[in-house]
Design a protein around this nucleic acid. Structure first.
Lengths: 203, 203
DNA sequence: AAGGCTATGTTGACAGTGTCAAGATAATTA
DNA sequence: TAATTATCTTGACACTGTCAACATAGCCTT
């Protein structure tokens, strides 16, 4: 039988759903992602997805989890280039963080927005993927402190929250189109780096 | 006739709607704010609000506009206390910014979140209220640069975007409950101030 | 191989949403 | 007083997520 013939069982609906949903997320946004439309697109009934994801939130969490894994890979790759000077790595990290957000705005919104996190409603699964990513931020901050790029006397956790907060905030302002547009990404990143980095003559 | 008697015309539905909606926003969140429920609460039919607000977005924009006015007052009051040292004012400003967000999380989300701003969908009315508030941020930044609290060589606009971004980011992390909770607000503000302010011995 | 269990997919239904159209009533204006 | 406008009403539509009940396919055990 050819693949075009409609079978009762889809075969791999879970993975297909996840893939289609991820795609649709970026084009239509979180609110524009409708389970029913998604099902229709895949030629499957409205409630079929519910056999693979508890509810819409579970599907969104699964998408976000992919995003976290994806980002974590990027961060790790940058951070572990030991041959590159730490200051350079910090700058590259900043640009990649903002770049990731700007390139995948809806995914970023999903990963770090209110939809999944508001009032501690995030699922355990999501937390398990996200928290290591947060921890990694602290770890990097600690290293930058050791390299005296960031003030040594500050608590690493607080400092990570503030530096990460800065990137998060810039990303949000860009994504949401609030008093910042993507044509100035480079300059904003440079400005953020300049503000962070302890003043040395060759910065 | 007493006020308890149901009249065909409400009398001041526009203002009452705005007030009730603002209240309901903080308790139920943006998505939990339903025009129908709102109308029902006010003892008026489902579609009555549409004679005073074009659609849900217009109502939300009106609420946000109030928020901007409210915040602008606070910022102005802090900024214009010329007898207070600039460094102190900067610190007070930071704490008030985060404090405002923490005290009115849903309002903050509305004012600076994707709902109203995404893909440039913000109404002209909203922009007219919001942009001066953004401009004010630049103005303050410029002053802080003159006082050498922030690096003088940076472009004021970029710097404003970055410093504001920092506060925005911290606020969002707090509000959305992402790796930060309100028990550490003070410390985070202090840490942000320390990172911003050019290093002088008495900081 | 037969029978039963589980995973998966289906239709029907419900409550909820924003919003439009058409008509009713009150207030204001000419 | 008559006409126009502002306001409010019911009816209707399309859309959403999600539950319950039922159907089918595939696997697993006896």
């Amino acid at each position: 039988m050819t693949e075009s013939i409609q079978r009762y069982h889809h075969g791999d609906l879970q993975a297909t759903l996840l893939q289609a949903a991820t795609q649709r997320l970026e084009t239509h946004g979180i609110d524009g992602l409708s389970l029913r439309k998604l099902a229709e697109d895949l030629g499957v009934s409205r409630t079929a997805p519910y056999h693979h994801f508890k509810d819409k939130n579970a599907l969104l969490s699964a998408i976000a989890a992919q995003g976290f894994a994806q980002w974590h890979d990027v961060a790790k790759q940058i951070f572990e280039q030991h041959e590159v000077p730490a200051a350079k790595r910090l700058r590259v990290f900043i640009k990649n963080y903002i770049g990731f957000a700007a390139a995948n705005p809806q995914m970023y919104e999903l990963m770090f927005g209110r939809t999944l996190w508001q009032q501690g409603a995030a699922s355990e699964d999501l937390k398990n993927v996200a928290y290591p990513s947060f921890q990694y931020q602290v770890e990097m901050t600690r290293m930058w402190q050791q390299h005296e790029l960031l003030p040594k006397e500050q608590d690493p956790v607080r400092l990570a929250q503030v530096t990460w907060g800065t990137l998060h905030g810039i990303a949000r302002l860009l994504i949401d189109g609030i008093y910042a547009d993507s044509s100035h990404i480079e300059e904003m990143c440079d400005c953020a780096a300049a503000l962070f980095i302890q003043h040395k003559t060759d910065c």
